[in-house]
Design a protein around this nucleic acid. Structure first.
Length: 265
DNA sequence: ATGGTTGAGCGTCAA
């Protein structure tokens, strides 16, 4: 099973680029974030046109929104938490059909957290910290996690080589100690970072480059904000990984690039 | 300290 996660930053604007992702990565499942489309305006013909006819989506007007497109049948998992009580469409969980039994897939769009890394001064940063603490608690109370995958834009770069300058980003939202320790505590509820299973931590690896750089490739001030985690039982089934860096050069592209992990499942 | 760019959708807000 080839699984892709991509913060598409408007599904309607970049529906055409999704076809390019499908052509390049041949995914069985795509997790999208920041679809920015309410469910009643969702382009309902698109999943089938891409050859990924099974679809789940949770959208809202203007902001946030997640969707999952799949080549295999899926079932939406209802009854997941309403994170921070906001109903802001940042999470969507499904069960994906697989030979060894269903895979439970969670697609997350963690709050970005605003500019000021102080929860007392900045409610958006407080929301971000609360969100990752709730997610950690949710998976911790689930107990032994098997056949579970977490994917999405987690808006945190946890390792030193997940940012272009560890020292300079320690007080920049996305790489501050409360965020990186919070994300690691969530990971440690039962997951392995699948991309870092393939890419050694000594190696710089990014999935996002700001729009606000003249030449993103030359300055290379990137961060690894997009993640795929698998429960420990699935580690032996990890087969390959691709971060589609060239997608950052596509015309009118997202500031995030697609991340693909292949599982023998 | 600020600016730099993008998207949704028409005000700015969020990233």
């Amino acid at each position: 099973m080839r699984l892709v996660t991509w913060n598409i930053n408007s599904l309607r604007l970049r529906a055409g680029l999704l076809a390019r992702v499908v052509a390049d990565l041949a995914p069985d499942v795509i997790c999208l974030q920041e679809t920015k489309v309410p469910d009643e305006l969702f382009p309902s013909e698109l999943p089938e046109a891409l050859g990924l006819p099974y679809v789940a989506r949770r959208g809202m007007k203007s902001y946030n929104g997640t969707a999952i497109f799949s080549r295999r049948p899926l079932q939406v998992l209802e009854g997941t938490p309403d994170w921070c009580g906001k109903d802001d469409r940042r999470h969507l969980a499904v069960a994906i059909h697989a030979a060894g039994g269903p895979i439970e897939l969670h697609n997350f769009y963690v709050p970005a957290g605003g500019d000021v890394p102080d929860p007392d001064a900045n409610p958006k940063f407080a929301h971000k910290l609360d969100f990752i603490a709730e997610a950690r608690d949710y998976f911790a109370t689930r107990g032994n996690l098997t056949r579970v995958v977490v994917a999405g834009d987690l808006n945190i770069a946890p390792l030193e080589n997940d940012v272009w300058s560890h020292r300079q980003l320690l007080d920049v939202v996305s790489h501050t100690p409360p965020e990186t320790t919070g994300l690691t505590a969530w990971l440690d509820t039962g997951f392995t970072d699948a991309v870092r299973w393939f890419v050694p931590p000594e190696e710089r690896h990014f999935t996002w480059w700001s729009y606000r750089n003249r030449d993103w490739r030359v300055s290379d001030r990137g961060r690894r904000l997009d993640h795929v985690w698998v429960s420990h039982d699935l580690v032996q089934r990890l087969r390959s990984h691709v971060t589609l860096k060239e997608a950052r050069d596509w015309p009118q592209t997202s500031d995030h690039v697609p991340v693909c992990v292949e599982l023998d499942a």
